[in-house]
């Protein structure tokens, strides 16, 4: 399943490590599977580049207030005097200039660069939180269903079918405003964190099924192995069996699925904001920015361009890194 351009090299370099201890002049070094994976990851050029890009995104997101101070412009600051009488930014490429690196928003005249820095923060936080929660729920449900089988498995499989049959976007469209109105009346201002929490919960409710299916399949194939039988014969409890015996054997696919879930939630959150039910103004957010920018497609195309390209680079880096991680953790799967 690898798309890494250096897979051939990585594999050929690996072979000596995997070989049985053979007469070598150097001392034989014992390495844990984790150390092996780390060594493979470090040798993968794609992994290094995408990892550095991702780290840069995270640093930018974490250091947003610091960047704001250095950059000298806040996310809510408006620069009306840099817009023409139609509300369009003056100058080329949507008002790109020394003080405004990516130009200004038409209409409100806010700085696009600093809004993207803060938007990264919102997006990454929601995506990471959603990925952690869905992976946790999915792993527990999958381990239980896969090991116990029988009616527990049937129920969980059915709930998975059910969650798949609900049209996610339409249901999310209905849930988000409903929940908001239940907690805050139509006139009360909704705090910024509330919408973030609602979005994470919506993703959690719908997103755990894919991790559950993955883990269930893995557990199925482990269930009949000798070490499981041995543990069963020695009379271990269910919790010990599930989380001490079975789970440590499948952490690699879980880690890979987690690393691929994060970009899925970044784009999912952007899609919800694009439909107008994600993050609300004035909180800076990628999806909301793209949604606003679409109506300026003809008059100010660069406003569409900057957030669109940034989210592309972010998701691409995540996907590449996830692929490399898969290769590093499971060299057999890479071809």
């Amino acid at each position: 399943m690898s798309l890494s351009p250096v897979e051939g090299i990585a594999l050929s370099e690996l072979t000596p490590i995997e070989d049985e201890p053979r007469p070598v002049d150097k001392a034989f070094v014992g390495r844990s599977p984790g150390q092996l994976a780390w060594a493979r990851l470090r040798r993968d050029r794609t992994a290094i580049v995408s990892g550095v890009v991702l780290a840069a995104f995270f640093v930018v997101a974490l250091a947003a207030p610091l960047i704001e101070r250095l950059y000298g412009v806040g996310p809510q600051q408006q620069f009306q005097d840099a817009l023409d009488s139609y509300g369009m930014p003056l100058g080329y490429a949507g008002g790109v200039s020394g003080p405004h690196w990516f130009g200004l928003e038409p209409g409100l005249g806010r700085d696009i660069f600093i809004r993207m820095v803060y938007g990264m923060r919102t997006s990454l936080f929601i995506a990471l939180a959603a990925a952690v929660i869905t992976t946790l729920i999915g792993v527990v449900a999958g381990v239980v269903a896969g090991y116990l089988g029988g009616w527990v498995d049937s129920v969980i499989a059915w709930v998975t079918d059910f969650a798949l049959a609900m049209p996610f976007l339409i249901v999310a469209l209905a849930i988000v405003p409903t929940v908001t109105l239940r907690f805050y009346g139509p006139r009360e201002p909704e705090p910024q964190w509330f919408r973030v929490v609602v979005l994470i919960l919506v993703f959690a409710v719908f997103g755990w099924t894919s991790a559950a299916r993955l883990v269930r399949g893995q557990i199925f194939s482990l269930r009949e192995r000798e070490f499981v039988e041995a543990a069963r014969a020695s009379g271990v409890g269910l919790g010990h069996m599930l989380f001490r015996q079975l789970l440590p054997n499948i952490w690699a696919p879980i880690l890979v699925s987690f690393s691929l879930a994060v970009p899925a939630y970044v784009t999912g959150e952007a899609a919800l904001s694009f439909l107008g039910i994600g993050i609300v103004e004035p909180t800076p957010d990628f999806g909301a920015m793209i949604f606003r920018s679409i109506s300026y497609l003809q008059t100010d195309p660069s406003y569409v361009f900057f957030p669109g390209v940034t989210i592309f680079v972010l998701v691409l880096a995540f996907n590449l890194f996830g692929d490399s991680l898969r290769d590093a953790l499971d060299p057999k799967s890479s071809r």
Binding site: P263, F274, I290, F291, S293, L297, G308, I311
Partner: peptide
């Protein structure tokens, strides 16, 4: 393609 967004591709 796997990393692009429909609204962005559509807009372009």
């Amino acid at each position: 393609g796997a990393s692009l967004q429909l609204y962005f591709v559509g807009a372009m």
